[in-house]
Amino acid sequence: MTHQTGDEGAVMAREVQVTFDAADPASLAAFWADVLGYELQGPPGDFDSWDAALDAMGVPPERRNDASAVVDPKGAGPRLFFQRVPEGKQAKNRVHLDVRAAPGLTGDDRMAALEAEAERLVALGATRLARHEPAPPLGAGHLVLADPEGNEFCLD
């Protein structure tokens, strides 16, 4: 196996993009932007809007919800990309996001913070799936939810 290396022979860090298959990329992107405090990615180049950019690219109106993306406004977190696929979700996710909603909190304070965030996300379209109580020393407690298209994620 070969690795791409930098000047000092170390493996170079890679940027990561998380990609979601979706039936409605624009709606799912808006949901995740609200969950994470992200923003919709702006149009390329000097275009004032996505419609102007897509017009210039010759993308017909019926194809304009084929993809969407959200980005961390501070540039620290990964880009989330949403692509339209014809099939629906079939099984449990093998990879999921952990949304760190109660950093530094423990016990009842932690679970109360997670519950408050779960209420906000359910109002945005999430579905609550499970609550896992704290089980020290390793289990701090978390909630399992699903986004509007059924992709599981944890409030951690």
Results as ranks from 00 to 15, higher is better:
1 M>Y: 13
1 M>K: 10
2 T>P: 10
2 T>D: 01
2 T>A: 06
3 H>K: 09
4 Q>V: 10
4 Q>H: 11
5 T>W: 10
5 T>I: 06
5 T>C: 12
6 G>F: 03
6 G>K: 02
6 G>I: 00
6 G>P: 06
7 D>I: 13
7 D>E: 03
8 E>I: 02
9 G>W: 01
9 G>F: 00
9 G>V: 00
9 G>P: 01
10 A>T: 04
10 A>Q: 03
10 A>K: 04
11 V>A: 14
13 A>E: 04
13 A>W: 11
13 A>D: 05
14 R>P: 05
14 R>Q: 12
14 R>N: 09
14 R>G: 10
15 E>C: 11
15 E>V: 12
15 E>G: 01
15 E>R: 15
16 V>Q: 07
16 V>D: 00
16 V>M: 13
16 V>H: 06
17 Q>Y: 12
17 Q>D: 00
20 F>R: 08
21 D>L: 06
23 A>P: 01
23 A>R: 12
23 A>H: 04
24 D>T: 06
24 D>W: 15
25 P>V: 09
25 P>G: 05
26 A>D: 15
27 S>W: 15
28 L>C: 02
28 L>H: 09
28 L>K: 07
29 A>G: 03
30 A>R: 15
31 F>C: 05
31 F>N: 12
33 A>D: 00
33 A>S: 01
34 D>W: 00
34 D>C: 08
34 D>P: 14
34 D>V: 10
35 V>R: 14
36 L>R: 07
36 L>Y: 01
36 L>M: 04
37 G>C: 05
37 G>P: 02
37 G>N: 08
38 Y>N: 00
38 Y>L: 02
39 E>C: 10
40 L>N: 07
40 L>Q: 06
41 Q>S: 06
41 Q>K: 11
42 G>H: 06
43 P>N: 01
43 P>C: 05
44 P>Y: 08
44 P>A: 13
